Simulated scan of single mutants.
Amino acid sequence: MLAALLGHLIGFANYAAILPALRAATGFTEAEAGIAGGAFFLAYAIGSPIFAGLTDTRDARRLYMLGAAFGIAGGLLFPLLSASFPALVAGRVLTGIGMAGTYMPGLRILMAVLPPERQQQAASEYVSTLTLGLSASFAVSGLLEMLIGWQAAFTGAACTAAAAVVLVRATMPAPRIRPSEGSLGARLWKVLRLPRMGLFLIAVGGNSWEGMAFRTWWIALLTFTALAPGNEAYVSWNFALLTTFVGPLAMPLSTWVARRAEAGRRHRVIALASGSSAILGLILALTMEGPFLFVFILSAVYVCAIFSDAGSLTPAILVRVPVAERGAALALQSTAGNLAAFLATIVAGLVLNAGGGVSEPGAWRLAMLSILAGSAVTSLLMLILDRDERRRTPR
């Protein structure tokens, strides 16, 4: 199941990986680039509650196949059929729906074949695989851009998604459906009314706000740094390929943080992880015109910090929810995260555009401040939840 997830994730960050080349070829503005990037997350946010919620009452494997079909269509639409801006937005929308239809149903398929004592750890590993998948997306997309052209990053993602479908159909059984009471809307409302669930969902949104916005604009930031005086020797480097090693580093870090969180003081551990991310983001905003290798290493450490708590947030929510409502809980979590990612990606693009474009240092600093605000919010909310938990714990 993890291998299949990697196959679908190739289409997650392919747009960000080839964004500078795409903009150079098409002339799309920073605002248009942000809108197209945000369209993916908006579609993901809208599709997530539908697909994830339906896993409580429908065959998750069939939902998975339907989602995969949307993702494959998105990879083929742009630029194979049309290279226009509307086609790009439509392609990202289809890819976002496809991700919604495969990510959470895939998690339910995985958890259904495991004993209860393994499910929480499996959820952490599944979510942590996201960081590895993002790096794989950058690697495959960057390699295809270098060998064939930026257009191949989209068709390549469609091919890997199709391969993932074959893998799941051949190896994963259809999960047994547990009866759930009430409609999807009623179950979503039931989960939303759980104590402090709203704070958890905002915290998830903060993590996605920072992570997805920075991932979308990371290659463009490295391009800006390479064009700074003294860094000209790095302009010809393939930054998409250069960033691929981050996933293999971030995934074990995320798994380690998740285990530390599970061992005790869950909320405090997550608060420390997200707080360190905000601090590193601020340092990066102040030093992005420095030597290229320094900025690159700092940005890579920053990405690892951003995703260090990703594997902890999902289990933190699931342990508070009855098994019959876990699909609804995953739906709310995914919606919160992707609505935040949608807004953050567009906000970063608009801030860059308003600040004078990607060639202006001031514009990048403002954009970075808008991005790192997400982890600052997550850290603050986790500290509040940690305080509440300590007050309820008998001494």
Rank of each mutant, 00 (worst) to 15 (best):
A4R: 04
H8Q: 03
G11Y: 01
I18N: 00
L19P: 02
A21P: 01
L22R: 03
A24N: 03
F28K: 06
E32Q: 13
A33W: 03
G37N: 05
G37Y: 06
F40M: 01
F41Y: 14
L42W: 13
A43Q: 09
Y44M: 13
A45L: 15
A45R: 11
I50G: 05
I50N: 05
F51P: 02
A52S: 13
D56L: 11
R61K: 15
Y64C: 02
A68Q: 02
A69W: 00
F70N: 04
F70R: 05
G71D: 00
A73M: 11
L76D: 04
L76A: 10
L77R: 01
F78K: 04
F78R: 06
L80K: 14
L81M: 14
S82E: 12
S84A: 14
P86E: 10
P86S: 14
P86R: 15
A90G: 05
V93K: 06
G98N: 14
G98R: 14
P105Q: 13
R108W: 08
L110P: 02
A112H: 03
L114F: 12
R118W: 10
Q121P: 01
A122N: 04
S124M: 11
E125N: 15
Y126T: 15
L130F: 12
L130G: 10
S137D: 02
S141Y: 05
E145F: 08
L147S: 14
I148F: 15
G149F: 13
A152Q: 08
A153I: 07
A153R: 07
G156F: 02
A157T: 05
T160G: 05
A163G: 12
A164R: 01
V165W: 06
L167T: 03
V168N: 06
P175F: 10
R178M: 10
R178T: 05
R178D: 02
S180G: 09
S180M: 05
A186T: 08
W189Y: 15
K190Y: 11
L192T: 11
R193E: 08
R196M: 11
M197N: 07
G198N: 09
L199V: 10
A203K: 00
R215K: 02
T216A: 12
T216Q: 06
I219S: 02
L222H: 14
L222Q: 12
A226N: 04
V235A: 15
V235L: 14
S236L: 09
F245T: 00
P248T: 00
M251D: 06
P252L: 11
E262I: 09
H267Q: 07
R268D: 08
V269G: 06
V269K: 07
A271M: 06
A271Y: 04
A273K: 09
A278C: 08
A278H: 06
E289F: 04
G290D: 06
L298I: 08
L298Q: 11
A300G: 13
A300L: 14
G311V: 03
R320G: 04
P322H: 08
P322Y: 07
A324D: 09
A329P: 02
L332M: 11
L332F: 13
L332W: 09
G337Q: 08
L339S: 07
A341W: 04
L343T: 03
I346G: 03
A348N: 00
A348K: 00
L352D: 03
N353C: 07
G355M: 09
G356I: 03
G357E: 03
A367D: 05
A373Q: 11
I384Q: 10
I384R: 11
D388Q: 10
R391T: 01
R392V: 00
R392Y: 01
T393I: 08
